[in-house]
Protein backbone atom coordinates (compact mmCIF):
# COMPACT_ATOMS: atom_id res chain seq x y z
CA UNK A 1 0.00 0.00 0.00
CA UNK A 2 2.78 2.35 0.99
CA UNK A 3 4.90 1.64 -2.12
CA UNK A 4 1.86 2.05 -4.38
CA UNK A 5 1.20 5.46 -2.93
CA UNK A 6 4.81 6.52 -3.51
CA UNK A 7 4.83 5.62 -7.23
CA UNK A 8 1.52 7.42 -7.62
CA UNK A 9 3.16 10.59 -6.27
CA UNK A 10 6.21 10.18 -8.47
CA UNK A 11 4.37 10.49 -11.79
CA UNK A 12 1.70 12.79 -10.57
CA UNK A 13 3.82 15.96 -10.74
CA UNK A 14 5.25 15.65 -14.28
CA UNK A 15 1.90 14.56 -15.61
CA UNK A 16 0.13 17.52 -14.02
CA UNK A 17 2.70 19.82 -15.56
CA UNK A 18 2.37 18.28 -18.99
CA UNK A 19 -1.44 18.28 -18.86
CA UNK A 20 -1.42 21.89 -17.69
CA UNK A 21 0.81 22.88 -20.62
CA UNK A 22 -1.34 20.98 -23.10
CA UNK A 23 -4.39 22.74 -21.72
CA UNK A 24 -2.69 26.10 -22.19
CA UNK A 25 -1.67 25.24 -25.75
CA UNK A 26 -5.14 23.96 -26.58
CA UNK A 27 -6.66 27.25 -25.41
CA UNK A 28 -4.14 29.23 -27.50
CA UNK A 29 -4.74 27.10 -30.57
CA UNK A 30 -8.50 27.35 -30.21
CA UNK A 31 -8.28 31.09 -29.67
CA UNK A 32 -6.32 31.69 -32.86
CA UNK A 33 -8.67 29.37 -34.71
CA UNK A 34 -11.61 31.38 -33.42
CA UNK A 35 -9.87 34.58 -34.48
CA UNK A 36 -9.38 33.31 -37.99
CA UNK A 37 -12.79 31.79 -38.60
CA UNK A 38 -15.71 33.12 -36.62
CA UNK A 39 -14.36 36.58 -35.82
CA UNK A 40 -17.00 39.17 -36.79
CA UNK A 41 -14.26 41.52 -38.05
CA UNK A 42 -13.14 38.83 -40.48
CA UNK A 43 -15.80 39.77 -43.01
CA UNK A 44 -14.98 43.46 -42.72
CA UNK A 45 -11.28 42.64 -43.14
CA UNK A 46 -12.01 40.60 -46.26
CA UNK A 47 -13.64 43.66 -47.78
CA UNK A 48 -10.64 45.80 -46.88
CA UNK A 49 -8.25 43.22 -48.35
CA UNK A 50 -10.24 43.27 -51.58
CA UNK A 51 -10.06 47.05 -51.68
CA UNK A 52 -6.29 46.95 -51.03
CA UNK A 53 -5.72 44.42 -53.80
CA UNK A 54 -7.85 46.37 -56.28
CA UNK A 55 -6.06 49.59 -55.40
CA UNK A 56 -2.65 47.91 -55.82
CA UNK A 57 -3.63 46.54 -59.23
CA UNK A 58 -4.87 49.91 -60.44
CA UNK A 59 -1.80 51.73 -59.10
CA UNK A 60 0.42 49.31 -61.04
CA UNK A 61 -1.58 50.21 -64.18
CA UNK A 62 -1.17 53.95 -63.61
CA UNK A 63 2.57 53.50 -62.96
CA UNK A 64 3.01 51.61 -66.23
CA UNK A 65 1.08 54.35 -68.07
CA UNK A 66 3.24 57.06 -66.44
CA UNK A 67 6.56 55.49 -67.38
CA UNK A 68 5.43 54.89 -70.98
CA UNK A 69 4.32 58.51 -71.30
CA UNK A 70 7.55 59.78 -69.71
CA UNK A 71 9.54 57.92 -72.36
CA UNK A 72 7.40 59.29 -75.17
CA UNK A 73 7.72 62.84 -73.86
CA UNK A 74 11.49 62.54 -73.44
CA UNK A 75 11.81 61.35 -77.01
CA UNK A 76 9.62 64.05 -78.51
CA UNK A 77 11.45 66.65 -76.42
CA UNK A 78 14.71 65.43 -77.89
CA UNK A 79 13.34 65.84 -81.41
CA UNK A 80 11.86 69.27 -80.66
CA UNK A 81 14.98 70.46 -78.92
CA UNK A 82 17.40 69.31 -81.58
CA UNK A 83 19.18 72.20 -83.23
CA UNK A 84 18.29 74.70 -80.49
CA UNK A 85 21.32 74.98 -78.22
CA UNK A 86 19.56 76.27 -75.09
CA UNK A 87 16.95 73.54 -75.27
CA UNK A 88 19.47 70.80 -75.90
CA UNK A 89 21.42 71.69 -72.77
CA UNK A 90 18.22 71.89 -70.70
CA UNK A 91 17.17 68.52 -72.03
CA UNK A 92 20.49 66.90 -71.20
CA UNK A 93 20.36 68.46 -67.71
CA UNK A 94 16.98 66.79 -67.16
CA UNK A 95 18.37 63.48 -68.33
CA UNK A 96 21.13 63.74 -65.72
CA UNK A 97 18.61 64.64 -62.99
CA UNK A 98 16.37 61.72 -64.03
CA UNK A 99 19.25 59.33 -63.36
CA UNK A 100 19.90 60.64 -59.84
CA UNK A 101 16.14 60.80 -59.13
CA UNK A 102 15.92 57.08 -59.92
CA UNK A 103 13.64 57.47 -62.95
CA UNK A 104 15.87 55.10 -64.93
CA UNK A 105 17.02 51.61 -64.05
CA UNK A 106 20.56 51.59 -62.70
CA UNK A 107 23.44 49.19 -63.12
CA UNK A 108 26.84 48.93 -61.55
CA UNK A 109 29.03 46.98 -59.10
CA UNK A 110 27.96 46.51 -55.50
CA UNK A 111 26.47 44.21 -52.89
CA UNK A 112 23.46 41.92 -52.89
CA UNK A 113 22.12 41.49 -49.35
CA UNK A 114 19.41 39.08 -48.30
CA UNK A 115 17.50 39.35 -45.00
CA UNK A 116 14.85 36.86 -43.90
CA UNK A 117 12.63 36.17 -40.92
CA UNK A 118 14.15 33.78 -38.38
CA UNK A 119 11.64 30.93 -38.75
CA UNK A 120 13.92 28.19 -37.44
CA UNK A 121 14.64 29.86 -34.11
CA UNK A 122 11.01 30.97 -33.85
CA UNK A 123 9.83 27.38 -34.07
CA UNK A 124 12.40 26.26 -31.49
CA UNK A 125 11.58 29.12 -29.11
CA UNK A 126 7.87 28.39 -29.30
CA UNK A 127 8.44 24.70 -28.58
CA UNK A 128 10.67 25.58 -25.62
CA UNK A 129 8.51 28.18 -23.98
CA UNK A 130 5.15 28.68 -25.72
CA UNK A 131 3.77 31.00 -23.04
CA UNK A 132 6.54 33.56 -23.49
CA UNK A 133 6.95 33.18 -27.25
CA UNK A 134 7.00 36.56 -29.00
CA UNK A 135 6.82 36.13 -32.79
CA UNK A 136 7.93 39.77 -33.21
CA UNK A 137 11.43 38.90 -32.00
CA UNK A 138 11.97 36.67 -35.02
CA UNK A 139 10.69 38.97 -37.79
CA UNK A 140 12.53 41.54 -39.89
CA UNK A 141 10.95 44.92 -39.12
CA UNK A 142 10.74 48.26 -40.94
CA UNK A 143 13.50 49.64 -38.72
CA UNK A 144 15.89 46.80 -39.58
CA UNK A 145 15.54 47.68 -43.28
CA UNK A 146 15.84 51.41 -42.57
CA UNK A 147 19.05 50.94 -40.55
CA UNK A 148 20.68 48.63 -43.13
CA UNK A 149 19.87 51.22 -45.82
CA UNK A 150 21.31 53.99 -43.61
CA UNK A 151 24.52 51.98 -43.13
CA UNK A 152 24.78 51.54 -46.91
CA UNK A 153 24.26 55.27 -47.48
CA UNK A 154 26.95 56.00 -44.89
CA UNK A 155 29.26 53.69 -46.88
CA UNK A 156 28.66 55.80 -49.97
CA UNK A 157 26.06 53.70 -51.81
CA UNK A 158 25.01 55.53 -54.99
CA UNK A 159 21.79 53.61 -55.66
CA UNK A 160 19.80 51.24 -53.42
CA UNK A 161 16.75 49.05 -53.92
CA UNK A 162 14.74 46.76 -51.63
CA UNK A 163 12.94 43.96 -53.49
CA UNK A 164 11.31 45.72 -56.46
CA UNK A 165 11.37 49.20 -54.88
CA UNK A 166 14.05 51.76 -55.66
CA UNK A 167 15.04 53.67 -52.53
CA UNK A 168 15.06 57.44 -53.11
CA UNK A 169 15.58 60.31 -50.61
CA UNK A 170 11.91 60.42 -49.61
CA UNK A 171 11.39 56.64 -49.43
CA UNK A 172 9.77 55.70 -46.11
CA UNK A 173 10.02 52.42 -44.20
CA UNK A 174 6.80 51.83 -42.33
CA UNK A 175 5.09 48.97 -40.51
CA UNK A 176 1.35 48.35 -40.65
CA UNK A 177 0.87 45.38 -38.36
CA UNK A 178 3.16 42.69 -39.72
CA UNK A 179 3.36 44.27 -43.16
CA UNK A 180 6.30 46.43 -44.23
CA UNK A 181 5.47 49.31 -46.55
CA UNK A 182 8.22 50.85 -48.70
CA UNK A 183 7.20 53.59 -51.16
CA UNK A 184 3.68 52.70 -49.88
CA UNK A 185 4.10 49.26 -51.47
CA UNK A 186 3.75 46.06 -49.44
CA UNK A 187 6.94 44.00 -49.25
CA UNK A 188 7.26 40.36 -48.19
CA UNK A 189 10.32 38.46 -46.92
CA UNK A 190 12.96 37.57 -47.96
CA UNK A 191 14.13 41.18 -48.37
CA UNK A 192 16.71 41.53 -51.13
CA UNK A 193 18.69 44.76 -50.87
CA UNK A 194 20.85 45.81 -53.82
CA UNK A 195 23.39 48.59 -53.34
CA UNK A 196 25.61 50.05 -56.06
CA UNK A 197 28.86 51.64 -54.91
CA UNK A 198 32.45 50.94 -53.91
CA UNK A 199 32.40 47.26 -52.93
CA UNK A 200 35.28 47.58 -50.42
CA UNK A 201 33.71 50.52 -48.65
CA UNK A 202 30.27 48.85 -48.54
CA UNK A 203 31.71 45.57 -47.24
CA UNK A 204 33.80 47.36 -44.61
CA UNK A 205 30.71 49.09 -43.20
CA UNK A 206 28.63 45.89 -43.12
CA UNK A 207 31.50 44.14 -41.30
CA UNK A 208 31.51 46.69 -38.45
CA UNK A 209 30.34 45.00 -35.23
CA UNK A 210 27.66 47.66 -34.74
CA UNK A 211 26.28 47.53 -38.29
CA UNK A 212 22.60 46.54 -38.50
CA UNK A 213 23.50 43.67 -40.84
CA UNK A 214 25.96 42.30 -38.28
CA UNK A 215 23.49 42.69 -35.41
CA UNK A 216 20.88 40.68 -37.34
CA UNK A 217 23.50 38.07 -38.21
CA UNK A 218 24.58 37.72 -34.56
CA UNK A 219 20.92 37.44 -33.47
CA UNK A 220 20.60 34.34 -35.66
CA UNK A 221 18.64 35.78 -38.60
CA UNK A 222 19.30 34.04 -41.92
CA UNK A 223 21.16 36.87 -43.66
CA UNK A 224 23.72 36.80 -46.44
CA UNK A 225 25.77 39.18 -48.54
CA UNK A 226 27.59 38.73 -51.82
CA UNK A 227 29.53 41.01 -54.12
CA UNK A 228 28.38 41.45 -57.68
CA UNK A 229 30.22 43.19 -60.51
CA UNK A 230 26.95 44.08 -62.28
CA UNK A 231 23.75 44.69 -60.33
CA UNK A 232 20.55 45.86 -61.99
CA UNK A 233 18.28 48.10 -59.91
CA UNK A 234 14.64 48.88 -60.76
CA UNK A 235 13.53 52.44 -61.57
CA UNK A 236 11.56 54.52 -59.05
CA UNK A 237 7.87 54.17 -59.85
CA UNK A 238 6.55 56.63 -57.27
CA UNK A 239 5.78 60.30 -57.50
CA UNK A 240 7.69 63.48 -56.68
CA UNK A 241 5.16 66.14 -55.90
CA UNK A 242 5.39 69.49 -54.22
CA UNK A 243 2.34 71.27 -52.82
CA UNK A 244 4.20 73.09 -50.02
CA UNK A 245 7.86 73.40 -51.01
CA UNK A 246 8.80 76.05 -53.58
CA UNK A 247 12.26 76.83 -54.93
CA UNK A 248 13.57 79.81 -52.98
CA UNK A 249 13.26 83.06 -54.88
CA UNK A 250 16.51 84.27 -56.35
CA UNK A 251 18.15 80.88 -56.47
Amino acid sequence: MKTGRQTFNKWQLPLTLVLFLSGLLLVMALRSLAASDSNPTRLQNDNLVNLIKTQEREIAGIQADISARRNLINNSRLTSASGKQALVSLQSQIQQLDIVAGYTEAKGPGLLISLDDNRKDAEAAQARNPAQFKPDDFLIHDRNLLYVVNDLRAAGAEAISVNDQRVVASTEFRCAGNTILVNTTRLAPPYIIRAIGNQNSLTRTLDLPESEFNILKMSGFPVSVESSPALLLPAYKGSYQFSFATPKAGS
Binding site: A176, G177, T184, R186, S239
Partner: peptide
Protein backbone atom coordinates in the same frame (compact mmCIF):
# COMPACT_ATOMS: atom_id res chain seq x y z
CA UNK B 1 -7.07 39.28 -44.03
CA UNK B 2 -5.97 38.25 -40.53
CA UNK B 3 -4.24 41.57 -39.82
CA UNK B 4 -5.82 44.10 -37.49
CA UNK B 5 -8.55 46.17 -39.14
CA UNK B 6 -6.74 49.39 -38.15
CA UNK B 7 -3.60 48.28 -39.97
CA UNK B 8 -5.55 47.42 -43.10
CA UNK B 9 -7.23 50.82 -43.01
CA UNK B 10 -3.78 52.45 -42.69
CA UNK B 11 -2.45 50.50 -45.70
CA UNK B 12 -5.51 51.46 -47.73
CA UNK B 13 -5.16 55.12 -46.77
CA UNK B 14 -1.53 55.19 -47.90
CA UNK B 15 -2.40 53.49 -51.17
CA UNK B 16 -5.14 56.04 -51.73
CA UNK B 17 -2.75 58.97 -51.10
CA UNK B 18 -0.18 57.44 -53.41
CA UNK B 19 -2.76 56.90 -56.14
CA UNK B 20 -3.97 60.49 -55.93
CA UNK B 21 -0.39 61.71 -56.44
CA UNK B 22 0.20 59.36 -59.34
Amino acid sequence: SLQKTDDLVLILQRLHDNRTKL
